[in-house]
Design a protein around this nucleic acid. Structure first.
Length: 466
RNA sequence: GGCGAGGUAGCAGAAAGGCUAUGCAAGUGAUUGCAAAUCACUCUUAUGUCGGUUCGAAUCCGAUCCUCGCCUCCA
């Protein structure tokens, strides 16, 4: 039985889909004005694992996963101006980069990736509905605002109430707003800015309304899961609820899920602190799967402290798993109800507890190693289980040799050179010329190639730790 | 100030009252020409501090110290 922590009720609840044949999940994706950083990687990976598990439980064809793209906002306009570039060209570029990063991290593409600029009709319609229903008002300057005081349950998700928010008010009051708590639904365009026609003149949508319009359009007024980063809980998600429920008169998302932050030295990774790394920074040094593994070592709601040391540790752990798989055939696994499956399932059923899944993988790797020499049938069986269960959380999809050799497009000439040296060394070993043998091993070691001699034969495999 | 999350062995990180978490690192033994890999074992009387409840507490209760996040764009 799947239990999910629901931020709306602040407790773990049994997940009860609205429709078992159509599980619907919406996740707030990226604003595409720059490369994705590790914090973005975490959202991508965390909700990918959740999506995979929902597919496993309910069937792939019964799950709809939507992750939006914010492709118009202040930062995008600012960056496009800096580059003297059309904003569409800018966002198109970074959407491509994001897709490359996702693929590298083995993130399955969502069923839909709605872009705000392609949903203007729905966005404007929703703003109009809110105005018609009296939840929003057009200001003299062409902006349209949401009147927070009109929505009586405002603050339910973030645990805030209107009085507290008012007491803690520290934003300079915008004259156009009737109430400092009100937020913008439609922004009047300044000269030269990208804009769309609307009943209130040329302008563009506020960030919050985009997600309300896209999620309800893709998934219906009421759907199962809405996710995103912890920092989106307030005000973004709170405002989404206020907009959507006011506009449709129905409950919005049933379950709200928020992933924890990536931190550096106990501080939130953020651009303003200048302490962020892009996914590309990391994948230049490490196989992308190392980053994915690292993300899965902690529970999705916990903070995740990033450091090279932790990535090195993740790399070593993955090397152990791939080493076990090396040279062992994989066959189909008939049963899906072994004790290992059960352990994985019970971990995942407990609010997607991936750190509890990992020990199962290491237990399987150990079984593979134990049986590798003598009982190859058993080794094949355990290796196949390992591949399958790791695969369910998007790990161990590469060929062991590819991972262990460093994978990413190593030139054949380099591999040939290595193999030639290995041959020379094998010859030396046959002749018991240990000095020469060790010399070659040291030469290779300096290149990051570690040799492993299998006993019984002179077969040597090179493994370059990634 | 308001609201929220947490403090577990060298590092990371699970465990929701009793039963070896696990990984990485370090060490010992087996194995090996020597290594590496692997297996077995050790570090592991780890649970911020002080009290309480209980036959028994990382886990429940109280107090206290500390860290972090949100309240403004942010995954």
């Amino acid at each position: 039985m799947l239990q999910i922590y629901n931020n709306l009720t602040r407790q773990k609840e049994e997940f009860k889909p609205l429709d078992n044949n159509n599980i619907r999940m919406y996740v707030c994706g990226m604003t595409v004005y720059d490369m994705c950083h590790i914090g973005h990687a975490r959202v991508l990976v965390v909700f990918d694992v959740i999506y995979r598990y929902l597919c496993e439980v309910y069937g792939k064809e019964h799950v709809t996963y939507v992750r939006n793209i914010t492709d118009i906002d202040d930062k995008i306009i600012e960056r496009a101006n800096e580059n003297a570039e059309d904003f569409n060209q800018l966002t198109g570029r970074f959407i491509d980069e994001m897709h490359q990063d996702s693929e590298a991290l083995s993130v399955i593409p969502p069923n839909q990736e709605p872009r705000a600029t392609l949903y203007m009709k729905q966005i404007i319609a929703m703003v109009q509905t809110l105005v018609d229903k009296g939840f929003a008002y057009a200001a003299d300057n062409g902006d349209v605002y949401y009147a927070v005081s009109k929505f009586k349950s405002y603050g339910q998700l973030s645990g805030k109430n209107i009085e507290d928010l008012r007491a803690g008010e520290r934003v300079a009051v915008d004259d156009a707003k009737k109430d400092p708590l009100d937020f913008v639904l439609w922004k009047a365009a300044k000269p030269g800015e990208p804009s769309w026609d609307s009943p209130w003149g040329k302008g563009r949508p506020g960030w919050h309304i985009e997600c309300s319009a896209m999620s309800t359009d893709c998934l219906g007024h009421n759907f199962d899961i809405h996710g995103g980063g912890m920092d989106l809980q307030f005000p973004h998600h709170e405002n989404e609820i206020a907009q959507s429920e006011a506009a449709t008169g129905e409950k919005f998302a049933n379950v709200w899920m928020h992933n924890g932050f990536v931190r550096i030295d106990d501080e939130k990774m953020s651009k303003s602190l200048g302490n962020f790394f892009t996914i590309r920074d990391v994948t230049e040094k490490y196989n992308p799967e190392v980053l994915r593994y690292f993300i899965l070592t902690s529970h999705y709601r916990s903070p995740l402290n990033y450091s090279d040391k932790q990535l090195d540790s993740a790399k070593a752990a993955l090397t152990t798993l791939y080493t076990a798989l090396r040279g062992v055939e994989i066959s189909a696994v008939e049963s899906t109800d072994t004790e290992y499956h059960q352990r994985v399932r019970s971990a995942m059923n407990d609010d997607f507890n991936t750190p509890e899944v990992l020990p199962v993988l290491f237990d399987l790797a150990k079984e593979v190693n134990r049986h590798k020499e003598k009982e190859s049938d058993k080794a094949v069986y355990f290796a196949s289980l390992l591949r399958q269960l790791a695969g369910s959380i998007g790990l161990l999809n590469q060929e062991p040799e590819a991972f262990l050799h460093g994978g990413q497009g190593e030139q054949d000439s380099a591999a040939d050179e290595i193999n030639a040296l290995i041959e020379q060394r094998n010859l030396a070993r046959v002749n018991k010329d240990w000095a020469e043998s060790d010399r070659i091993r040291d030469v290779l070691k300096e290149q990051g190639i570690v040799l492993e001699d299998k006993d019984g034969s002179l077969y040597v495999q090179a493994s370059r730790v990634v």
